[in-house]
Design a binder for these strands. Structure first.
Lengths: 348, 348
DNA sequence: CTGAAAGCGCTTACAG
DNA sequence: CTGAAAGCGCTTACAG
């Protein structure tokens, strides 16, 4: 079955292609009766214009590209789900790419997507991204750029982020209120803004409660994965570092750490209270279930797409955007890894 | 910067657009010196033809659509990663859609993608999919269809699946060899082929070792999620059903069950050995780490895309394809939930 | 071996 | 308010 096209509609209705097209694109200069007639017929036969053909004139593809640094990752997946959901509402297509934490891959994807004439690129950069030329390139090509979660501060574009510093503060404060005084922090890599912010939030909380900051309690987890949690926990024991709490950069890291500590018969939450980050799907079924920070991934995805729509409409009107960074609130979810009465630390 | 186009190349090289195009599309009837000259220049200026424009003549978009029934799902994410990886190698674009377990959504996505003129639709159907018209529609429109994991047997198209029956057999046999005689099965919904096959594999193993099948040990988990694992485990205890082993439809379900059993001080693996399915990223960091079946998600994604390429090339040559179902092997990963010496069941 | 020309399915100035 | 015509950037029969 060959597809119905504009000229078929025109012929059937004894109108010109121009008129049909005007109706479809909501041009005002069409007689309202004609408009009705066209609309009705179009609906009846289920016609939709071939977008690839439209593109040739409009240069709009109704397609955006989404670049994720990691695929097997609950939070990024939620963002993806949010973008897909919102994009579909507006009949946009979403091309997906995964940079796999490699800047080279990221560059390749961007150039491929630009070549594909996407209307916008929505992305979280990799851990390693420390050059910006490929990001600026997007804007030079006249395409819109929206960044989320892992952003580059220096690039001027809409950004949707979590208030990581506040979230980390909440997580750490929760541990303090549960009586922890020797709180470990398994942080992320040094350069990403989100791991810096979480680290700062951790320090903010210590400061507020007059708990001395001890650099020997901070361990770096480059990839925020489970193995790093496990091996850094091991290091903590090997070094004989005292602790009664742990704030980890991700639930996966928290789980790895809990596993090691439990293997050494350390009681959780009695001897060690733990807070993770991101509310992974698995965390509530862990034993004990993991207290964590819930990040609104779906909402972030929706907002990312809406930021693009907004930017596009501003640009069309020739307006300059302002206040382009949106911080989404996160929420502490209290579970069993911190379920204890306020108490004096047991290991002190 | 306005994009360079075919006519620019032609002008610069004092050749016709036709010749340039022929070189780019590997037509044989071009002088080899001319070809070299064009290729070199094209490379130098980094020209790539505008694919949306090409489409108008070729009707090929170099874009495939991938439909997943669920987004926050380790296995489907791995498949997605595999498809993305392989597609990029062949310079294909991947549009992603998520049906969220809804047949209606699945239909919408398919019609949107068809309208977008994708070259193929690669998909796993939803749990609920029990009509096929929208699937057949894909083929009627002349687009290629490839199914994976959650397939419809009745549709004639390339299918990439895991040998679920064998995998479930392996899982159950492993429990039996660890001394289990009263093995619970937390199965998936009734209609999906994969949950039927896993159920059959479970029964195959019981039969091989002359262990009577007891229907009261089988519980249905519609969504194979953690809550269902938790509440079915509760049901097991409430009903006073005896057990010494559990084979669960997914790691998430296994985790939910383990949590409930541990809350009731049942020792794992001593009193209850557990095998999950899919090797979720979290499973190795669970305490105890979860024995599971590793499904080659990335490989499946790669194979799915290659099945499409293969189908496309066969179609071009006018050949009929045969033997279109590919079964990928899975692997038992032994971890702590079954780490015990062979022993008599303790609860007997 | 090369190129002029038609055409893919739309949109959009422009004329009437 | 309507339509004829040009054109978006390519590909591909066809002529030479």
């Amino acid at each position: 079955m060959s597809k119905i096209k504009l000229s078929d509609i025109a012929a059937a209705l004894k109108l010109s292609k121009a008129t049909i097209s005007k109706v479809l694109n909501s041009y005002p200069d069409v007689n309202s009766k004609t408009r009705e007639r066209v609309l009705q017929y179009v609906k009846k036969v289920g016609f939709e214009p071939d977008r690839n053909a439209s593109y040739l004139r409009t240069k709009e593809t109704n397609t955006v590209a989404l670049i994720l640094p990691e695929m097997n990752h609950d939070f990024f997946n939620s963002v993806l789900a949010g973008v897909l959901k919102r994009a579909q509402q507006s009949k946009y297509n979403v091309l997906v790419g995964c940079s796999q934490g490699s800047v080279e891959e990221e560059k390749k994807l961007i150039s491929q997507f630009l070549n594909q004439n996407v209307d916008a690129i929505l992305m979280a950069v990799t851990q390693q991204t420390n050059e910006f030329k490929h990001l600026e390139e997007v804007q030079k090509e006249g395409k819109l750029l929206v960044m989320f979660d892992k952003i580059e501060k220096i690039i001027d574009c809409p950004k949707i982020i979590i208030d990581d510093r506040k979230a980390a503060f909440d997580a750490t404060e929760h541990l303090i209120l549960k009586g922890c005084k020797k709180i470990l922090h398994f942080r992320g890599a040094y350069s990403p803004q989100i791991s810096i912010d979480r680290y700062l939030g951790y320090r903010d909380a210590l400061e507020k409660y007059d708990i001395p900051f001890d650099t020997s309690r901070v361990f770096v987890c480059e990839n925020a994965d489970g193995n790093e949690g496990y091996y850094n926990a091991k290091k903590v024991l090997d070094l004989g570092i005292e602790f009664d709490g742990l704030f980890a950069i991700s639930d996966l890291t928290a789980a790895g750490a809990i596993k090691l500590f439990k293997e050494h018969n350390i009681k959780i939450p009695e001897e060690l209270a733990v807070v993770g980050f991101s509310n992974w799907r698995f965390s509530q079924f862990y034993f004990p279930s993991i207290t964590t920070i819930d990040q609104p991934g779906i909402t972030m995805g929706v907002k990312v797409f809406e930021a693009f729509l907004n930017e596009k409409s501003l640009k069309k009107q020739g307006l300059e955007p302002e206040n382009r960074t949106l911080k989404l609130p996160s929420k502490l979810i209290v579970r069993d890894t911190t379920a204890r009465e306020v108490q004096k630390s047991l290991t002190s």
